[in-house]
């Protein structure tokens, strides 16, 4: 097992290396001189030269590349041009709404999808099964920002059940801030539950016909116990995998949903950085989010070892 973990860690390092190289290339694809673009047309040549030197743009590309890798290795994501602060600080200050939104959305998506998926598989071919599959397909087709605007209009502005937008005042308590996150999380949870419903249904269908489930029934176990204690436990691996994959979808959804609800998270940070051409921030957000994705998928692989005794490496 130690060999497997070491192999996976090595694979993760290789993937992160390619991620960093891709980010480096993307940021340098921009036409024109980034320093001139950032400073605007009114900047003096001396300002441009100074910024180029500050950003290391006066060095050869190869030197810039290795210096970029070196910086990342030491946890330095560079300096934001607009905020005039280290990118790590800028990201940390904006991370809370995105992290909360992603976590709550995952919880809501799983809370919707798991019971629906299990019941769908259990009542395969029934009206409920067909209805839930059709609803899941519809949910996956709705743009999250559109659903967000509709929910915002009816449930926040109209009914007044939720705050319309924002993340509360800086002095707001954690629970007050969570209140601002619930409606956007419901929107993202609904949209992203579709994939989990389909996978949990498929995983349960696979397991419900297995011999060990038949044996459990033959032993006179209650249906509840058979389905939850035996079948669901075995179906957990594909379900956990798809929940991990949903993370990338959720981040994409969070970026656009944040705009609907004016949440000061990483989505609004990166969109603002694009409009202001603050390349170090775009670079930093890409590295952090892709890095998190790689890490989460590694942790899920490790989780397999814990939840399924059949998995041995």
């Amino acid at each position: 097992m130690a060999r497997y973990v070491a192999k996976r860690v090595l694979g993760m390092i290789v993937v992160m290396f390619i991620v960093l190289t891709t980010v480096f290339i993307i940021v340098r694809l921009a036409p024109g001189d980034p320093a001139s673009l950032m400073l605007g047309p009114e900047a003096t040549p001396a300002d441009v030269v100074a910024l180029r030197a500050r950003m290391g743009l006066d060095q050869p590309v190869v030197v810039q590349y290795f210096s970029f890798l070196g910086q990342i290795a030491t946890g330095n994501l560079g300096q934001s041009i607009f905020f005039n602060q280290p990118v790590t600080q800028v990201i940390a200050a904006r991370a809370e709404p995105t992290v909360l939104l992603t976590l709550f959305s995952i919880v809501i998506a799983v809370a919707i999808a798991l019971p629906v998926g299990i019941l769908s598989a259990y009542t395969r071919g029934s009206l409920f099964d067909q209805g839930s599959l059709s609803t899941a397909m519809l949910a996956a087709s709705v743009p999250s920002f559109w659903l967000g605007l509709i929910f915002q209009q009816y449930l926040a502005t109209g009914a007044g059940w939720f705050p319309v937008s924002g993340f509360g005042s800086p002095s707001a308590t954690f629970f007050e801030r969570v209140h601002f996150i619930i409606l956007p999380s419901i929107v993202l949870g609904i949209v992203n539950s579709a994939l989990i419903i389909r996978f949990s249904r498929a995983a349960m269908l696979d397991v419900l016909n297995d011999d060990f489930v038949r044996t459990a029934r033959a032993k006179g176990m209650s249906e509840w116990r058979v389905v939850i204690r035996h079948a669901l436990k075995s179906a957990l691996i594909p379900i956990v995998t798809v929940v991990g994959l949903t993370f990338a979808l959720l981040i994409s959804g969070a970026i656009v949903t944040e705009r609907v609800f004016n949440l000061p998270g990483l989505g609004s940070l990166v969109v603002g950085a694009v409009l202001r051409r603050d390349y170090p921030v775009i670079q930093g957000v890409l590295v952090v989010i892709a890095g998190l994705y790689v890490l989460i998928n590694f942790l899920i692989d490790m989780l397999y070892l814990a939840i399924d005794p059949r998995v041995k490496y």
Partner: peptide
């Protein structure tokens, strides 16, 4: 590595 980037984020960049 390419799939580690959320689609909208990579497209934005």
């Amino acid at each position: 590595a390419m799939m580690a980037f959320p689609d909208i984020l990579l497209a934005i960049a």
